[in-house]
Amino acid sequence: MTSSTETVNKQDIIDYAARLGDDAIVIGHRLSEWVSRAPFVEEDVALGNVALDFLGHARMYYTHAAELSNEQNGTTDITEDNFAYLRDERQFQNHLLHELHKGDFAYTTARQLLIDVFNKHFLEQLKKSNDKTLAAIAVKAAKEAKYHCRRSQDWTLRLGDGTSESHERMQLALNDIWGYSHELFEVDALEQRLVDAGIAVDCTLLKADWLKEVTAIIEEATLMVPDQDWAVSGGRQGYHTEHLGHLLTEMQFVHRSFPGAKW
């Protein structure tokens, strides 16, 4: 990562930061749905914590995107909330894995395992970004991602190697979501331009380490890595599952019902 950011199209960085914000807000939303519904109170607290971390990441990425947008447009009034509340389903560019429904506790655990391990590797690379703000966000978020990974690993072991019911639920969950993991490692034209400029992470390079780490945890939990023969993709192009529309409807309705209001 040696090139200068000056030759880079600012809109690309705005879009990239917004994507990362979309990932974080959508998974944060899903996790927050657990509050008051967890298997026991300690988990209400823990899931709330992780949800708050993702919400915090979303705010940092969106704020960066908002500041760059204001610079670009000569405005001052674009904020993080414009990105979270005033864009539609086709404009959101989060990975599909993040938006899938809440599911049961095994589903949430399996999904977090895949996402948290991905984030840990992703953020280590983002720390080296030529975009100083993104690099600084990564430094902060990486600390939390390490904790998230430990938590996901612990729960995967407990559920995979717990009772026959928990084992079965975990395996079903992994089977159901595995095909959505592949797009985490895709790089489209926009990201490639930013990879070339030393700003974005080249996700294609993360797959081997991710798969190795996730496989080790899954196998230790006496579970099997699912078949690799299906893959769904499209989140980064705004081509979403039907889950996202409902999530955004719920998240955005108050904000959109009172245009221009301050909260």
């Binding site: 807000i25 939303h29 927050s32 749905e33 509050v35 008051s36 109170v41 209400d44 607290v45 709330g48 914590n49 949800a51 708050l52 919400l55 915090g56 979303a58 705010r59 969106y62 993080e80 909330d81 979270a84 509340y85 719920e250 998240m251 309705f253 108050v254 904000h255 009172f258 209001a261 909260w263």
Partner: peptide
């Protein structure tokens, strides 16, 4: 929590509800 009208309010509300669990 899932309907809070700004990200700031969402964060504060989630923290609050989490405190209550605590």
């Amino acid at each position: 929590i899932t309907r809070a009208p700004s990200l700031r309010r969402k964060t504060v509300l989630l923290s609050k509800v989490q405190d209550e669990a605590g």
